[in-house]
Amino acid sequence: MKLHWKKSQLIWSYFFILPAFFFFIVFRLYPLLHVFVLSFQKWDIQGAKWIGFKNYEHLLNSQLFGMAFWHTLLYTVLVVSFWMASAFGIAFLLQSFHQKIKNLFRGLYYLPHVTGVVVLSLTWAWIYEPQIGLFNHVIKWAGGQPVMWLQDPNLALWSIILSSILVIPGSGVILYSAAFAALPTAFEEAAELDGANRWQKIFFVFLPLLKPTTLYLLVIYTIAGFQVFDRVYLMTGGGPVNATTTLMQLIYLTAFRDANYGLASAQSAILFFAVCSVTFLTFRLLRVDFTYQV
């Protein structure tokens, strides 16, 4: 079909998207391009100087950067797999309930999401407090030794991961529930007629049918996982002994404590490529053409 556009109509169309694109170009696109430029510079208060790949070389040899990368990866893999499993599992279990109970539980799981990470992290820091916090309170009452949840370098990262996975991701539960509700019952009935048991049904009926939702959540959660910052910053500040330093925490410190903006940009660029390649791989592995439909 050959479309014929009227000029005044066109002007109106572009006028409607103009404000949105103005902000996109200025505050999203430009900084994104600038990050790569900065990563080849030594950038300080006096000005910028091109130094080629020096920042990247520095990162290759930096033990701290390696640690931060590993912590981020560990956090992402563990938290995302727990989130995916629990969101799917709970949505699946909720399926058999009456609509009212379903709504009640979905609301409950969604509440922490409304609360926001800052409040959750402040509260978790308080729960983990070594002398008077809730967890050690309970441990002491049960006759155990106090645990240094956030002060012990061997434990701190695990405590942060625990704080993430204990709170069921309400967004995932709601998306999966909606997807379950939208499934045509015919498939399930057919599987039951064929004598499929519960697990077979999950693996051969539900999981394939819910693939778009899974892919979508996986990508979104992975991107969020790689960028974990708020809870690390608020609960440990990256310590003790850098045991919880994640990439974003390191970027924050490099840029805003050490005033090394070039190096921080190189770290950001690496984070960017890591996220992009993981996202790309996820799309390839799950082989779904992403149709903006959730």
Partner: peptide, 30 residues
Amino acid sequence: SFPGRNLLFGLIVGSLMLPQMVTLVPLYLL
């Protein structure tokens, strides 16, 4: 409907897949 609609919409949706926090440093400088 206007030329470039799908491309621009694709750009917007695609930007959801980008980690926003990587632009923190240039954004602050800006």
